[in-house]
């Protein structure tokens, strides 16, 4: 299937100065990725390989030292609701309730009240939090908080989601539920997704394509197309092809 390019990262390099006088630490080396409309792409790599830095640069939180980042034909210079970010922890506004957190972005756009309320109710139901509208974040479990975090970016109808190990801090069962939620969202709303993970199975369940990264300085060592048709049930994890791909990626990671 050929898709229109939505997001391009060309030859991006990034280094950090660790301390004054020391040689700067190369974090990313010549990263090139492209993501089509509605495509789900996973970035997988050993911890500390600069995966999160790619998300930060893609979001517009940080600037690349070299290379270009293009989204919808325009250079990325600042964060935008068109590229919604889901962080590893939910990062909700603790002084706002669930529905206020989700409505935050729409309120900034000064939409009328009834429209915001309608949209809010719709997205609360999409992430399965109906009945929890008036709870504060600290009253929710980690999985529920992450659902709020997803809803508050989805409500902005982003063309792309950037997810930085979004389910890593959740327990195994909640993680599987959240993966299924993300799959159903991608069918329903069809945003492109760039997500970072260190979990090979998660990448294989969710992604259309996988970029495998090396240790520092991070660079892409392999691009892998995931052949499985969607929807992908959990039982897929026992499939021979699935296990073979998993082995292949693991051997790349531990090389």
């Amino acid at each position: 299937m050929h898709r229109k390019n939505l997001f391009l990262m060309n030859n991006v390099c990034k280094s950090f100065s660790v301390s004054a006088g020391n040689k700067p630490l190369n974090v990313l080396e010549d990263i090139t990725l492209q993501i089509g409309e509605g495509e789900i792409v996973a970035l997988i790599g050993p911890s500390g390989c600069g995966k999160s830095t790619i998300i930060k640069i893609a979001a517009g939180f940080e600037k690349a030292d070299k290379g270009s980042i293009v989204f919808c034909g325009d250079a990325v210079t600042a964060p935008s609701p068109q590229r919604g970010v889901v962080f590893q922890s939910a990062v909700l506004f603790p002084w706002l309730t669930v529905s206020q957190n989700i409505a935050y972005g729409l309120k900034l756009k000064r939409l009328n009240r009834t429209l915001i309320d309608e949209k809010c109710a719709e997205f609360i139901s999409i992430v399965g939090l109906t009945g929890f509208e008036h709870y504060y974040p600290h009253q929710l479990s980690g999985g529920m908080q992450q659902r709020v975090a997803i809803a508050r970016v989805l409500i902005m109808q982003p063309k792309m989601l950037l997810m930085d190990e979004p389910f890593a801090s959740l327990d195994a069962q909640t993680r599987i539920l959240m993966q299924q939620l993300l799959l159903s969202i991608s069918v329903r709303l069809n945003p492109a997704v760039l997500f970072v993970t260190h979990d090979v199975e998660e990448a294989l369940i969710l992604a259309d394509r996988i970029y495998v990264m090396s240790k520092l300085p991070g660079s892409v060592i392999r691009k892998i197309g995931v052949p499985f048709l969607k929807p992908r049930p959990i039982s897929l994890m026992g499939d021979y092809e699935f296990i073979k791909l998993k082995q292949e990626i693991l051997s790349l990671l531990f090389n």
Binding site: A59, F61, A78, P79, S80, P81, R83, G84, V85, F87, S89, V91, L92, F93, Y104, G105, L108, K109, R152, V153, M156
Partner: peptide, 12 residues
């Protein structure tokens, strides 16, 4: 927290 400020910026 810097993360909260980023969240706000990313939401517009």
């Amino acid at each position: 927290p810097a993360a909260l400020i980023r969240a706000g910026k990313m939401l517009g």
